[in-house]
């Protein structure tokens, strides 16, 4: 896997709280058996509105989605992360991001970035602003030069920066897993 690098992009701002994964990718698009090509159905129902932010020419090419709190709540469908990545996003920035979505995002090299309320307000008030996200330093740099730091799981950060696959990491624990299975009082299947 390719190491994750610092990148700069303008933002798209979707200032809605509690955006659930049914909005990100409605269930009728889950009848697939592959993970590719989901970007065309990202926010499918909201995109029917010509005024929706992703329909604005200014949004084209943006890699960073700034959105309201509790982003990605609801269903565990990883299709939501696949759709955002396939569409072109590389980071979602919010004050809080739902647990399962956050997990799914990281596995797909989509950065879940949780910033403080002040930074968030500044981002929401300046849609299209150019922002730099540095995963190594865990900072998001605003146009005024201020760098806001964000929390990020140390292991996920290490995996992304070094191109390490989490399944490979688990597979390397095979001996420990076998030992656990043999010694554990855990009940049988």
């Amino acid at each position: 896997m390719e190491p994750f690098k610092t990148f700069e992009s303008k933002t798209v701002v979707l200032p809605v709280d509690n955006v659930d994964t049914d909005q990100i990718i409605p269930a009728r698009f889950l009848t697939v058996t592959t993970r590719g090509g989901m970007g065309k159905n990202l926010f499918a129902d909201w995109r029917l509105d010509p005024d929706f932010v992703l329909n604005q020419p200014t949004s084209a090419g943006a890699l960073i989605l700034v959105t309201g709190e509790n982003f990605g709540c609801g269903s565990s469908r990883e299709h939501a992360a696949w759709a955002l990545v396939d569409y072109g996003f590389r980071a979602v920035v919010s004050t809080s991001i739902a647990d399962i979505f956050k997990n799914n995002a990281v596995k797909n090299r989509l950065l879940p970035v949780e910033v403080d309320a002040n930074t968030h307000r500044e981002l929401v008030q300046s849609p299209g602003a150019s922002v730099v996200i540095d995963l190594e330093k865990k900072t998001l740099s605003l146009p005024d030069g201020r760098a806001a730091s964000f929390p990020f799981d140390g292991f996920a950060q290490h995996c992304l920066l070094n191109g390490i696959d989490q399944l490979d990491f688990l597979m390397q624990r095979e001996d420990a897993i076998r030992a656990f299975e043999e010694s554990s009082p855990a009940e049988p299947a």
Binding site: N103, K107, M171
Partner: peptide, 20 residues
């Protein structure tokens, strides 16, 4: 608890997950 498809793969392959 619920997991995404990548983690479904992790559990199929190793019966384990990485968790905080």
């Amino acid at each position: 608890f619920g997991i995404g498809t990548t983690e479904v793969g992790h559990v199929l392959a190793t019966q384990c997950l990485l968790q905080r």
